[in-house]
Design a protein around this nucleic acid. Sequence first.
DNA 1: ATTTCCCTTGCAGATATCTGTAAGGGATTT
DNA 2: AAATCCCTTACAGATATCTGCAAGGGAAAT
Lengths: 221, 221
Amino acid sequence: MFKKILLAEDFQDTNQGISEMLREKLQIPIIRDELYCDKAYNRLKYAVDQREPFGLLITDLFFKGDHVERKLTSGLELIQAARNLQPEIKVIVNSMEDNPSKIDALFKDQEINAYVCKGRHGLTELVRAIREVYHNRTYVSPGIDLNVSNNVFELEEFDLMILQSLAEGLTKKEISEKFKKDNITPNSESTIDKRVSKMFDEFGAKNTNHLIAKMIREEKI
Amino acid sequence: MFKKILLAEDFQDTNQGISEMLREKLQIPIIRDELYCDKAYNRLKYAVDQREPFGLLITDLFFKGDHVERKLTSGLELIQAARNLQPEIKVIVNSMEDNPSKIDALFKDQEINAYVCKGRHGLTELVRAIREVYHNRTYVSPGIDLNVSNNVFELEEFDLMILQSLAEGLTKKEISEKFKKDNITPNSESTIDKRVSKMFDEFGAKNTNHLIAKMIREEKI
DNA sequence: ATTTCCCTTGCAGATATCTGTAAGGGATTT
DNA sequence: AAATCCCTTACAGATATCTGCAAGGGAAAT
């Protein structure tokens, strides 16, 4: 089993619960837990310098901001920095994110080894994930279905840019002009009209206000 | 100190961390933890029936939905049900909500005894809160400033209804008609126009799309 | 009583949005 | 080569939005 594990999790209660479990259930000799990404990174670096690197990093994705100044502000940044420093380190993400396409991106882009979704079985699943990862397998919380990723209604890049611009208060004419300036094509006002109308049908919206409200609430934009 | 404490918290890791701490730091003889509001309520009821009621309820606000059917779906509903059953029970809310006006409402409407904000000192603060509440005092996490509640730009009821209607895709004419039907006044299309334009100024929005996007992102609607 | 202030309402004009129709171009199929 | 499909674009007409201006009414101040 792993000899050294680093835990990055900013909630004290959650942090405590996980550390306790790691010690009891898995008898990990060395467990370090940190409340800030920067401090976690420093620990990794020091361990590498001392030639006693951590075997596993368990990290959350979202870290609250407070008065402390931060360089690394999210789990994503921490993972990238860690991999840069120590490419072979195993990574388990432990977060409340449950959007399959976002989790899928973590495996594809960051090559994480496991994803555990916080919830009623989060701790049990985490123990399982650590064992799987130790044996060079990947793990995903059973509640998450990466296949049935809701790509059915996933927004493509172009439509996304239109929606973001509308949400920023630009008119369709302004969007058309911006697209022309940035060499984004297609870019006629008419096409933008058409795209938005098509989204009305796809998402069952009555008008632009309705569409934007839906998209933001569903965290598509 | 309290003899019996009930903890309602759906995240297994957080739940574990808190239970552990209650046992170690405060030597509470009986601690029950539940992952569902309904189960927590059943425990309260059983304890009351047995004439050995809980002295304190610690609850989260948001509970994830899953396959299990639920009657009580939020901490708010649990608190109301608990107070209905056992009016004198002490209540501490432990959640990640950090909006002062919403927390203020919990004290005013639900008469909760303490509010602890999850975060880097959440567990330490919770211990403190329990001691304070035991001595019949209230407690709020120091990071929360109930005085500087962002009421400066709080929406009044009327403007809120307009925004919600717009976000549902109604036109201003339709909103005007709805208001007339529901005897809400003022209700002319002109006034609704004016109110929305005024909000453009207040919130620095360029148009309706922009305003709705801002309001939803700031969780005003 | 008069003035002042603020809100509601109506109206009008300039823009913006939404929905069709239709023409043209590129890619694929037949 | 011709037909088909899909996307882009232009344009037009009906609505909707946004911004003024002006009139009226109620409440508070003078």
